[in-house]
């Protein structure tokens, strides 16, 4: 398989997965798009060898999380209010949920997304985000508590 075919294959398989994760962490569509682009550029730079599909996906998510951390380091503004304005359009059902999720710190948002949406264990999330499993569990616990308070238990 040629390198460009391989890239196209990975993009087709994972572009939405990575975009959703970046959006969950960063909260803004433009920055999430940049993070996904940087992820695939990093792939082209390093051309890692993957053991299997799960390794491949976890690696890409790890690099995406790292790219998001770079963005968070550069960010100069308070994320909460502006984020909802540039989030992909929520509907009536999800608007309050998104607002509550966006009020969580980025590390909790990342843990919530990878745990509830992608279905990773806390140990796997720790390896993807470069954090200890205990820390991930604390993040999830605090996030659940915060969401429960804001949404009166329904999420």
């Amino acid at each position: 398989m040629t390198p460009s075919n391989r890239l196209e294959e990975l993009v087709g398989k994972y572009e939405n997965t990575l975009y959703r994760a970046a959006l969950a962490i960063l909260g803004t569509a433009p920055e999430a798009e940049d993070a996904v682009q940087d992820t695939f550029l990093r792939y082209l730079q390093t051309r890692p060898k993957f053991r299997d599909e799960s390794h491949e996906k976890a690696w890409l998510l790890r690099v995406t999380a790292n790219c998001c951390k770079d963005v968070l380091r550069d960010r100069q503004r308070h994320p909460t209010v502006e984020l909802l304005d540039v989030y992909p359009a929520p509907n009536a059902e999800t608007g309050d949920l998104l607002e509550a999720v966006l009020e969580l710190p980025p590390d909790q948002r990342a843990a919530v997304h990878l745990f509830y949406y992608e279905g990773y264990s806390t140990g796997e999330i720790g390896r993807i985000l470069g954090r200890r499993p205990g820390t991930v569990r604390s993040d999830l616990s605090r996030a659940r508590e915060a969401l429960r308070r804001k949404l009166k238990g329904e999420f």
């Binding site: 993009v11 572009e15 975009y19 798009e33 949920l97 997304h113």
Partner: peptide, 27 residues
């Protein structure tokens, strides 16, 4: 987190971004 899952299922990259990604070159 069903509502969250339903929302995220509907989130997809735009055609413009998809085009950019498939045409990336190694820096």
């Amino acid at each position: 987190m069903k509502r969250y899952e339903r929302y995220m299922d509907g989130v997809k990259v735009s055609d413009v971004l998809h085009e950019k990604l498939t045409n990336l070159k190694a820096p």
